[in-house]
Design a protein around this nucleic acid. Structure first.
Lengths: 342, 342
DNA sequence: AATAGTTATGCAAACGTTTGCATGAATTGA
DNA sequence: TCAATTCATGCAAACGTTTGCATAACTATT
């Protein structure tokens, strides 16, 4: 599509007013060296012509953009879209725009994304890494070029950049503590695959809460499952088959909890009267089932905000070597009907 | 944060190789006028230094970017994040990046967003308008400057730009026809506010399907509700209070359907044996409830893809006056347990 | 009236590309 | 051997900004 109306530039305004482009530039910036009269004339004309500065040209000259690059494994996913939302809000407040790209859980595409973003001279990159990403060289290389990098949620342990993570341990601890406070004494746990950091952190939280309450740990009450609904159903069956059944379930995440929820009900138990249950993540589903699920909010939106704040701090710092910083987002226990009668 | 390693540029490579920047530029573009030998030396060096061209500088010189601007009312919302996903995929394939901004359902912010995007010299803008937007001047002005605009889903009727919309009429028709095919003969409709286009289109589809099947239209079976779960519950109560109760419900959207779903079950009716029910949108919730909800997929992802395709066509066209085009996305009926026993 | 100081403005370079044109070297054909 | 042709490369301008420095026109001070 070709341009019909020409976009106004400094030079065009300058010609109309009868001055130089520098004067127009300075007038628009309210530079002290320009007379009130000229300023007024120029500003009026600029407004009349609906002038807006060419950020491309400005970025070239300033050698920096006001754009933040974002890389996520998946866009169409409540947690990530919430995070993007949080990033956008903070960026918008600071006058920045965001370029969103997704890796599709593919390491190679993630590397390509970083190249594209650096090529676009973004002021910084916020990323949550793909499941297939093991190595963080691409992020380190960017950082060495002076572009701040913030990893959030899915971070790489051994990569020395700023990070925003959630405290899974505390989240799990509080969740289990809540079950105990509700009077449950035999709490089962549907745990995740052992190679995942979150599984271990949440399992530790579970154990600590039990110990703190003086409840003995029972190996039979912990079942390891994959992170989806189907496995939640299967896992909980094992627990319901025990002769000494649990009176509560702490599930590693919401899909697993939803699976358990269904299975428990289809076996005729009443939630929360017979068995209480809690999940993790605060997915939208948790509000849609009956009774609604008590869960741990991971605050995707909040994490996005914090990641944006962190990167803006780093961008605006003039320190040559900003030490990477890790910020931890507090989880929040959302108490609903699956643990408390309403 | 300050730069430590300098980013390689054409000039730097030129100095190392001992030629001019133009030669490097041409070599990297595989320009015919450069000798094989020089090309090889230059390309190797560029790779070694991990050179990637400065898109900012290139955009300035070429007077065009490879960035598409996206404006949505809300990011954290399944339909919109799916649409963004679809846009990203197509854009990525074409070598474009996307800038995502949200209006927060606020007309003024939407106008600001368009300014920011044009200032960033995006190649085109894809938008879904805010609820408070009545006037489309801001989009027309952009288009007059030669920047293609594509509106999707929430479009402005009187604004002459390209559009991607869904056929609500057909979607509703098929949904109701399905209920009829399942043997239902007394089909209630939870309709939406009368000033919304979607309400009317879906209502027309409902009526047409009935008429086509020779089923008389009964005013008592249509209840107007707000578009959320709570009103779905309230609305369906009216229908269940009729002495001649419906044997099926077609709800204007999924939240309303979910509300109705809950209410129907809590009154002791069995879905779909006593009453069948269908929604609209294919929100993730629809798969999470028991029985799962038959619904109409609006294909947010597909709409995003189509919007991206449309804008890329327009960007790559050299026609001075590209006639706006409207493309209609076919809805798809997703049949699940709320209408058919499994 | 001459100098110093102030005020308002313009010039030109720079940011990193791309590309039309010019130039010089090498090759070809007679 | 000379002109014509081809080949490889460089020069310089342009894209729209910003900004240090120079300059011109005043104003104030003596």
């Amino acid at each position: 599509m070709t341009n019909i109306n020409k976009t106004p530039t400094l030079k065009i305004i300058a010609e109309i007013i009868g001055c130089s482009a520098s004067t127009v530039s300075r007038a628009l910036q309210d530079h002290p060296g320009i007379s009130q009269d000229t300023k007024k004339r120029i500003c009026e004309m600029a407004k009349k012509m609906d002038y807006s500065p060419d950020s491309v040209a400005r970025s070239l000259q300033k050698k920096s953009t006001t754009t933040i690059g974002v890389i996520v494994p998946e866009i169409r996913h409540d947690f990530f879209s919430s995070a993007i939302d949080g990033i956008e809000d903070r960026a918008y407040q600071a006058g920045y725009t965001i370029i969103v790209s997704k890796s599709n859980e593919d390491y190679n595409r993630e590397v390509l994304n970083t190249r594209s973003l650096t090529s676009n001279r973004v002021a910084g990159i916020i990323a949550s890494v793909a499941q297939t990403t093991r190595d963080g060289q691409h992020f380190l290389a960017i950082r060495k070029r002076g572009i701040p990098v913030v990893l959030f949620d899915r971070v790489l342990e051994d990569v020395d950049v700023s990070k925003v993570i959630v405290d899974d341990y505390v989240g799990a601890y509080n969740s289990v503590k809540h079950l105990i406070d509700c009077g449950c004494i035999r709490i089962g746990h549907l745990s995740g695959p052992k190679h995942l950091k979150i599984s271990n952190a949440r399992l530790r939280g579970y154990k600590a809460a039990l110990e703190n309450a003086g409840i003995g740990y029972d190996d039979n009450l912990v079942v390891t499952v994959e992170l989806d609904e189907k496995h939640g159903m299967e896992g909980v069956r094992q627990l319901l088959n025990l002769e000494n059944k649990p009176d509560a379930i702490f599930a590693i995440n919401d899909p697993v909890a939803v699976g358990a929820h269904k299975e428990i009900q289809s076996q005729g138990y009443i939630i929360p009267d017979d068995i209480s249950i809690t999940g993790f993540s605060n997915n939208p589903i948790t509000e849609m089932i009956e009774p609604q699920l008590t869960t741990v909010d991971q605050h995707g939106y909040k994490m996005g905000q914090m990641a944006a704040e962190l990167i803006l701090d780093e961008i605006n710092s003039d320190q040559v070597d900003w030490a990477p910083e890790t910020r931890i987002v507090e989880t929040e226990l959302i108490i609903r009907g699956s643990t408390v009668k309403n």
